[in-house]
Design a protein around this nucleic acid. Structure first.
Lengths: 183, 183
DNA sequence: GTGTGCATGTAAGGAGTTACATGATTGC
DNA sequence: GCAATCATGTAACTCCTTACATGCACAC
């Protein structure tokens, strides 16, 4: 079985304490969502493949009459995760943002529409930064108190970087508004 | 025809002076690559669809014996581009970065490997920032001298944001190194 | 009793990439 | 002469998302 980033996401989340496929998906929504989102339709088949490869082990763990599977990372799974974490080969980061694409072509708009576009982008960046600061970072810091540090580090890196971009766009907006009134 | 971001990418690049499918792809590699990459296998079918919808017009424009199509944005195409630039609806930004995913799970590694991982991430961010600063920004500034400002604005936003992330990771690396020697 | 959350999966479709296929032009 | 670049397209494949399908548990 060829392991890809979604495999390591599942492996890593199990290692951090998520037990079911559902829990893994929920955990990603509260943490890796901003740099590696996933869906249930990815998680369940991935778990099945990892079980077949004996990188995770499965146990029945029903809640009342409702069936549930409880997964754990095996020793081989841990080893595979560490090997990936150490490996140098890596696909380049992929960023796709329709908002920035709009900004790139903004010269086609009249000045007031350009400023509105910059304002919208700035507001969105502020929103994202705020969401990370208020929702993602505090959750990650609970793990940090338990000795698991890196989720909090990544959360702060994300929050700070988005905040930086938000400020940058704020300054641009102010500058454009000034130019506009100066005429 | 339903227009999606790649359609507007093609439309916008034609508007900025690219004439052929090949030229559009080359232009994206030198500008939008970091927030909206594309491939020739996307550009050519997109051009054909846009022509059918009469948002672009095509002319034969051979170079010697080699056939070439020269495209131009029609009035309807301009209008469609402006409508998109003004529209508020927008898919959320998508960022996928295997490097950051690794960092998120870095607690599974021994301290020295964690530092090496942070160092690699920092170096990569510095590389990207440098590439933007040295290759993308100067090219965009040529357009700026011709009155087309936003490609340069976006290039600077990207270069500055990556530089910020690179510095952030540099500080983290220094801090981790200090903790490690302190023990 | 009812809505929200927990829980597990499959099927179909969309978006984008890499590989394949071909050939002329230009600069060294 | 040869390599890099210009130029156009198609086919196959991968990855991922949305929609579909189902049903229990728990809190209000």
């Amino acid at each position: 079985m060829k392991l890809r980033p979604p495999s390591y996401l599942v492996l890593g989340m199990l290692r951090l304490g998520a037990r079911s496929g559902y829990a893994i998906k929920k955990a990603t929504d509260l943490s890796t969502r901003f740099f590696w989102p996933t869906s249930l339709a990815q998680v369940y088949p991935e778990l099945a493949k990892l079980e077949q490869a004996e990188l995770v082990s499965r146990e029945d763990d029903p809640r009342g009459a409702r069936a549930r599977s409880s997964y754990e990372v095996t020793e081989e799974g841990e080893e595979a995760l560490r090997a990936w974490l150490r490996s140098e080969r890596e696909a380049p980061a992929q960023f796709r943002d329709e908002g920035v694409l709009r900004l790139f072509f903004a010269d086609a708009l009249p000045p007031e529409d350009r400023i509105a576009l910059v304002r919208r982008l700035g507001a969105r960046a502020r929103d994202t930064a705020g969401q990370m600061r208020d929702e993602i970072v505090p959750l990650a810091e609970e793990f940090e108190r338990g000795g698991v540090r890196y989720p909090a580090i990544v959360a702060r890196l994300g929050a700070d970087t988005y905040a930086y971009a938000a400020e940058w766009l704020g300054r641009l907006e102010a500058q454009l508004a000034e130019e506009d009134t100066a005429e």
